[in-house]
Amino acid sequence: MSTTDEAVRALLLLMPRLVGRAKRVPVPEQLRSFAPRHLSLLSYLLFDGPMTVNELADRLEVAPTTVSLMVGELGRAGVLERAEDEQDRRRRIVSVTEARRPAIEDWLARGARAWRVALDPLTPAERALFVATLRTYESALE
């Protein structure tokens, strides 16, 4: 791409196809009523491990009450569980239940594989620039 306008045109044509393909990834049966709006929450718990509601709220950039409601919904469905924090018994740690973990991992695996194919050839600096660019794009849309 020689100009910014050419790159913008290419991305405007590409983005709807990317979103369309992402939406066609089948959601596991037991997650169909929750998965689309809880994808980021489930991803954080799988990739980063169990954490508190406040930690999830910070990462998702939403209020803790919003996360608490989502965790409650997913907990009633048997997707998430809350356990007492061993270091501070006043805190609750949220994690994916072992019964639902395989379905969630399988669901996210296709996207993770595709990102690895796209990102592996890049240098660490190029990967960081790519992620920063997508974040800037997201912010500019708001």
Results as ranks from 00 to 15, higher is better:
residue 78 G to S: 03
residue 142 E to V: 11
residue 77 A to Y: 11
residue 87 Q to E: 10
residue 106 D to L: 12
residue 95 S to K: 05
residue 36 P to F: 00
residue 3 T to A: 01
residue 131 V to N: 04
residue 3 T to E: 01
residue 112 A to N: 08
residue 5 D to E: 13
residue 97 T to N: 01
residue 69 L to A: 15
residue 121 P to V: 04
residue 137 Y to T: 09
residue 42 L to C: 00
residue 137 Y to W: 09
residue 92 R to G: 02
residue 82 R to H: 03
residue 2 S to M: 07
residue 75 G to T: 13
residue 81 E to T: 06
residue 127 R to Q: 13
residue 82 R to N: 04
residue 83 A to F: 15
residue 16 P to R: 04
residue 85 D to C: 03
residue 31 L to S: 06
residue 17 R to I: 14
residue 33 S to W: 02
residue 130 F to N: 01
residue 110 R to H: 06
residue 131 V to G: 06
residue 12 L to M: 12
residue 79 V to I: 15
residue 20 G to T: 09
residue 93 I to T: 09
residue 13 L to W: 15
residue 98 E to S: 14
residue 59 R to L: 12
residue 45 L to E: 02
residue 71 V to T: 03
residue 81 E to I: 04
residue 91 R to F: 02
residue 106 D to W: 10
residue 18 L to I: 07
residue 39 L to N: 12
residue 29 E to P: 15
residue 133 T to W: 04
residue 126 E to R: 11
residue 25 V to L: 14
residue 69 L to D: 15
residue 23 K to S: 12
residue 16 P to A: 02
residue 119 L to I: 05
residue 91 R to S: 05
residue 81 E to P: 00
residue 23 K to C: 06
residue 121 P to W: 01
residue 136 T to H: 12
residue 109 A to Y: 10
residue 60 L to F: 02
residue 58 D to E: 14
residue 110 R to E: 08
residue 96 V to H: 00
residue 25 V to Q: 14
residue 94 V to D: 05
residue 70 M to C: 10
residue 68 S to F: 14
residue 41 L to H: 00
residue 127 R to M: 02
residue 37 R to Q: 09
residue 96 V to C: 01
residue 33 S to A: 12
residue 82 R to L: 06
residue 128 A to E: 09
residue 76 R to A: 15
residue 84 E to H: 03
residue 68 S to Q: 12
residue 89 R to W: 13
residue 11 L to P: 00
residue 56 L to C: 10
residue 79 V to W: 06
residue 27 V to I: 11
residue 116 R to N: 08
residue 63 A to Y: 12
residue 42 L to W: 01
residue 83 A to K: 12
residue 112 A to C: 05
residue 67 V to G: 05
residue 70 M to S: 12
residue 76 R to P: 13
residue 85 D to M: 03
residue 97 T to F: 00
residue 105 E to P: 03
residue 129 L to Y: 05
residue 85 D to A: 12
residue 32 R to V: 11
residue 42 L to P: 00
residue 129 L to M: 15
residue 142 E to W: 10
residue 56 L to N: 05
residue 28 P to F: 15
residue 118 A to S: 04
residue 15 M to Y: 15
residue 87 Q to I: 05
residue 139 S to R: 10
residue 48 D to I: 00
residue 94 V to F: 03
residue 99 A to S: 10
residue 1 M to T: 15
residue 18 L to D: 04
residue 90 R to V: 01
residue 70 M to T: 11
residue 138 E to C: 07
residue 48 D to N: 10
residue 76 R to M: 08
residue 131 V to M: 13
residue 15 M to A: 11
residue 28 P to S: 08
residue 33 S to N: 14
residue 36 P to E: 03
residue 44 Y to S: 14
residue 30 Q to C: 13
residue 67 V to C: 14
residue 72 G to K: 15
